[in-house]
Design a protein around this nucleic acid. Structure first.
Lengths: 341, 341
DNA sequence: AGGGTGAGAGAAAGCGTTTTCAGTGAACAA
DNA sequence: TTGTTCACTGAAAACGCTTTCTCTCACCCT
């Protein structure tokens, strides 16, 4: 087989292939696009020529005329965090499997300007749709208000009633976590929140509240966190001083890690004196000390669903409903019944 | 300002802008490309028309004629792991900042076929260069042997003497870790390796060996891991039974976490009885119990350097040297002098 | 034999840019 | 006035493909 580029000239074009195969370039096009209207031997000749020349079709030219890029864009942020990172990877993966390229642009803040830029960059890449994986409420509004002439699908910070959205039911996850603790016999559960500008953080907090309401008990104290292990640690130092607190729901695993570390530092035993639940089920969760009870989100499913939704939108099916995926509680060693007395 | 797409027709073209501004489309082109040869008022008229129509230039058409996509490709794997994930994000980011789009394709295995596919997909996207962020030794060879007609830059699994490569000096990092333990007075250091098909895993292991050699002592026992916290945990169970081991160097933080968990489970104190060092400095490392001593890699710098190298390659400067970035040891609470006796 | 049919292949137009080349004025000097 | 220069703008070709239209030929039916 010949090298991809013999000699110095430019890459071979359809015409070159056609010449080599002794047909016209339209016939080559037909072969490439799997048309039935080509005799088997002609097709074979063309394919041989293609292999021989190492020809690959020029997508720019193709896009120019078809106007279909087979590319979808994704706007994301905070890719270093577990959740956002997983979502990005899974969407990208699902997109590829569906035959689409996916362009990721990471935004660093949610100013109208940087969002506009992100959308602009994506539009310049001729994306057919945009997946927004940004959990800030205003950010989403901003992007929507830009109304680029392509469908927009939301995968993060999703709440019921949103059109073209698929997400993991954060509130349900939080309830699972809190109910588990209440079921164990804890009177109430403290909460370390995520940054409340994040839709998810608000939803997890709501779930925490609702679970208490449902049992007609008052929620435990609330501590403000920002997803970082550090903020969890700081909350932990304060929690260690509240003798009343026997159970804590941290809005993500990273904060739970910091939290447990602070509790250890203060000589409080987990779960002996205080039970801890996280959220995310990061790979390390089962191997912490103690192994962390947490809420597992099926990110790969989310990615697949998001891409399905996008593809349907491209067919013109603008689904107004919101798909919510149920997360699951994974019970490990960091939770136990409260000590009596 | 007008909407991006008024009405139903197709997107406005240069000709439309030209008509609106009362010039020819070539003048519009000049304005877009920042040519000096346009009178200020003409330019203003054109710009007004552009804003008015919500025009954006069609990159496919542009690419077709310029043959410069301003896009670079990246092949990566295991994006869920801390290191690979960070590298991908940082390269992407640095690329964007340099005005390039970067297409990421994740491979799941390193068969010649899937690598060929990955390169093919990238080539179809008309990338001008390919950044390979795959740590398997054969994988790299495979990609190189495909010799796509674009420059290839390597950012992972880099070893000295490799052309067009920039990486973090894994061996140096490992030595830092081990020397720290030896300096504390440990007689030797055990090692939990990464999967040895990974270049990095091999290099960290080599660093561990060399550090011992330099002090003329024999290295401690070696345990095979695979980066996963689980494998660290399993190694930890065995290490707990080896009374001789007072210090362990785990090839990444995840394994260190599992390791410490197993030691706790077995009632061994860290660092009281056994010191532990990790590698990666993941965000949770400072907030583990105990806070983990580990090796910090400056991924963002790596990304920037990789893109610089790529850009230079595109200018024709094929740098045959290998850039190695020095990692740094971060000392925390998981390491201490061995107990005497 | 004549005409209809359908498979297969070619010709030509067009997608929206950039590039190269050629033109148009105005200003200025001779 | 005439030519020369300079700043600016327009015309046309080309990039590599798909799409639509047309043509050819073999085949079958009547």
């Amino acid at each position: 087989m010949a090298r991809a580029s013999d000699g110095v000239g430019r890459a071979p074009s359809m015409t070159d292939v056609a010449a080599a195969a002794g047909v016209s370039h339209q016939t080559v096009s037909r072969v490439l696009n799997g048309s039935e209207l080509v005799r088997a031997d002609t097709r074979a000749r063309v394919e041989a020529a293609i292999a021989e020349l190492g020809y690959r079709r020029n997508n720019a030219a193709r896009l120019l005329v078809t106007n279909r890029s087979r590319r979808i864009g994704m706007i994301a942020a905070h890719l270093v965090l577990h959740g956002p990172g997983m979502i990005a990877v899974s969407v990208q993966d699902a997109g590829h499997k569906a035959g689409y390229d996916v362009s990721l642009v990471a935004v660093e803040d949610f100013s109208s300007q940087s969002l506009r830029e992100a959308v602009g960059r994506l539009l310049d890449e001729a994306v057919e749709a945009i997946v927004v994986a940004v959990a800030h409420r205003e950010a989403l509004e901003q992007v929507r208000s830009l109304d680029a002439a392509v469908p927009i699908v939301v995968v993060q910070g999703v709440s019921a009633g949103q059109p073209m959205a698929v997400g993991i039911d954060q509130e349900a996850g939080a309830r699972l976590a809190v109910e588990h603790l209440l079921d164990l016999g804890h009177r109430h559960v403290a909460h370390v929140t995520g940054p409340l500008e994040w839709v998810e953080a608000g939803q997890r907090r709501t779930g925490w509240q609702r679970a208490h309401e449902q049992r007609h008990v008052l929620p435990g104290p609330e501590f403000a966190g920002d997803w970082s292990p550090k903020s969890g640690y700081e909350a932990g130092l304060r929690i260690a001083d509240e003798p009343d607190v026997t159970a804590v729901f941290a809005a993500n695993d990273s904060m739970a890690i910091g939290l447990m570390s602070a509790l250890h530092a203060k000589g409080r035993d987990v779960p002996g004196q205080i039970s801890v639940v996280g959220f995310d089920n990061m790979p390390e969760a089962p191997y912490l000390w103690p192994a962390l009870t947490t809420v597992d989100q099926e990110f790969s499913l989310l990615g697949r669903r998001a891409v399905e939704l996008t593809l349907r939108a491209l067919e013109g099916d603008l689904d107004p409903s919101t798909q919510l995926i149920s997360p699951a509680l994974v019970i490990r060693d960091s939770t136990a019944a409260p000590r009596l007395g």
